[in-house]
Amino acid sequence: MKRVPLSELERIYEALKSYGSVWVRKKNAYETAETPEELLSTVSKVKKPAKFIFLPEEEPLLAFVQDGKNVTFQEVIREAKGVIFGIPPCEAKAISLLDLNFLQGEGEDIYYKKRRENVLLFGLACLAPDSRCFCTTFGYGPFTESFTDIFGVVVDDVLLFEGITEKGKDLVKNLDVEDAKGEELKKLEAMKKEITERVKKLDIQGIQEKLARMMDSEIWDKISSSCLGCGACTYYCPTCYCFDIQDVERPNWGYRLRTWDSCMFTLYTLEGSGHNPRPELKYRWRNRLMHKFNYYPVLYQEFGCVGCGRCIEVCPVNIDIREILMEVKNEPIRA
């Protein structure tokens, strides 16, 4: 573990800057920092998660222009390069979950990859989990470093940090900083224990298996009864990644655009024939929950939720995923 006093953050700021943009936490979104002071952001939960950097709300994939009989195509790859400073473990884990989907095998997504490869995650321990957080439910906590490249903790007025991945270690190696002091490390341990315990853990043991047997349950009616069917929960979710690809056309030019999509929309599954396999909200709700707590674990052995609580906060009608998980757990299964 290395240390740098918060008053001397410009020493690492310059090093981070050499990687490209330095994103820091602002209230509404991650934004690029102009000064080293901005690294000191005290925002504990950024409203729009860091997924916005890797999966922007919209991105053009190609552009085309017609000139007489000639049509020229141009591939567009929107790149991102730099360091996300202060990303909390939950969002870093969420990005590791996105990686499972976007960086593996045939499903490899070059657009995502281009950005993901060139952005370092400088994580910071989450010191202020709020009442919506339930990250410890998923086998990690506010001090889990493993999903980041470099991980740090602010202890009093000092930033302690260490490289986790090779890339991160390289960055740390080149910095002119001293080693952390013994009493600081001791304090860190105490903080870790105290803050991790503050997060309310849910017992969702066996939920994956249970859900598999609940396709026809009546619970979906109940869960979806107050849902409005907007896309807020999925848009702000750090692990949701569904997208739609559409063309924007003009008489002689246009572009292909990838935008977000949400499984809560009617249009998401509507087929050309007019048939909709998920005609009602309850089916869409079932899919959303199944995807996060059954399909994802079946495919990747990881839940598709990190317990950040954003969906609880942005939902217009305050549908609480924690309550729903508990309802699912307590629902008797009829033979």
């Binding site: 709300e57 409005l228 907007c230 807020a232 848009y235 949400s262 929309f265 217009p316 009608v317």
Partner: peptide
């Protein structure tokens, strides 16, 4: 952000 919460919450927006 085009989440359409305004539309979905509106009592008048019932169009299929």
């Amino acid at each position: 952000v085009r989440c359409y919460a305004c539309r979905q919450s509106c009592p008048m927006c019932y169009c299929e």
